[in-house]
């Protein structure tokens, strides 16, 4: 069996159900409710993208899903089992690069299996396969600071995939990359997803990124966080950047998503959010152009 097939045969796509989750910070009269009565399902084997205005509590939601924090009310479960803490069935890629700077690329990728004491001949083969998959064979002995931004993100994808997680959770992973690298990473990441159809949950503030990647799109309302709308992005795969730009269906979904986001931004604008004001301005220009 080829490495490709071995990897595929092991994939178990998980399902995450979030029901009635609320999260408050602080206590009593100082309590601030960031997430309120939030319910949604991240479906098995789909790439779900969550988009919302900045500061809408998406990162809080990620920390809850990852198990670093616990909800004040409601439950989160993966494959029917409640989430109690961080575990390798849900791997999270955070905004900031979290490759360990004191380990080489290769040691970073193998960190998960080594920590759990699960290094077998098969794992080492898989590591080789993933290294070539993300194009970093030549860089196996380099330390993270010797890699470019795009390479670091690819190394992190490999470090996550070697653990064969049931759900991959990505919190704005391509933020801070330059425009060119970012677009290459979209194509790259979406090709990886198309190959092995794991459950992916991807959080972003970039509408183009969201439409390009998503099977389903969650549009979030502003604080307190809730799913405001769910759009099915029924654009065929594999997707290529040029096709998507010219695809009518995807542009239609984009306009629909933008108008919902606009409403949300208007609401927070009225509450005095600077980010929302910027968004409203940018959106008005965009609509005027089309």
């Amino acid at each position: 069996m080829s490495q490709e097939d071995k990897l595929k045969s092991k994939i178990q796509a998980g399902e995450i159900v979030v029901s009635g989750v609320s999260k408050e910070y602080g206590a009593n009269q100082f309590a601030k409710e960031v997430v309120k009565d939030c319910s949604f399902t991240i479906e098995r084997g789909k790439l779900t993208v969550m988009i919302g205005p900045s500061g809408c509590g998406k990162s809080t939601l990620i920390r809850l899903l990852a198990g670093f924090e616990h909800p004040t009310a409601g439950t989160i479960s993966i494959n029917g089992k409640p989430v109690t803490g961080p575990a390798r069935d849900r791997l999270v890629l955070f905004q900031e690069t979290a490759l360990f700077p004191w380990m080489t690329t290769y040691d970073n990728i193998l960190y998960g299996p080594r920590a759990r004491g699960e290094v077998t001949k098969e794992t080492l083969e898989l590591a080789e396969f993933l290294l070539s998959k993300v194009g970093l064979q030549e860089f196996r002995k380099k330390y993270p600071t010797q890699l470019s931004g795009g390479m670091q993100r690819r190394a992190e994808l490999a470090r996550a995939m070697i653990n064969n997680p049931e759900v991959m959770i990505l919190d704005e992973p391509f933020r801070g990359l330059d425009a060119m690298t970012k677009e290459l990473m979209w194509e790259y990441y979406s090709a990886l997803y198309e190959e092995n159809r794991r459950t992916n949950f991807f959080v972003t503030t970039d509408i183009d990124e969201a439409i390009f990647l998503a099977d389903r799109l969650f549009i979030m309302s502003n604080i307190p966080t809730r799913v405001r709308a769910v759009l099915e992005v029924d654009v065929p795969r594999p997707r290529r950047l040029l096709d998507i730009v010219e695809n009518d269906r995807s542009n239609e979904i984009k306009m629909e998503a933008l108008s919902i986001l606009h409403e949300e931004a208007m609401k927070s604008f009225s509450r005095g959010s600077k980010a929302a004001a910027d968004f409203v301005e940018a959106y008005s220009k965009r609509v005027a152009k089309t």
Binding site: F68, P86, F94, F100, Y111, R116, N163
Partner: peptide, 14 residues
Amino acid sequence: DESYVRAAYCLGAK
């Protein structure tokens, strides 16, 4: 950086 600690826990470290 807190993110290194979180990443290690995520990857299954004790």
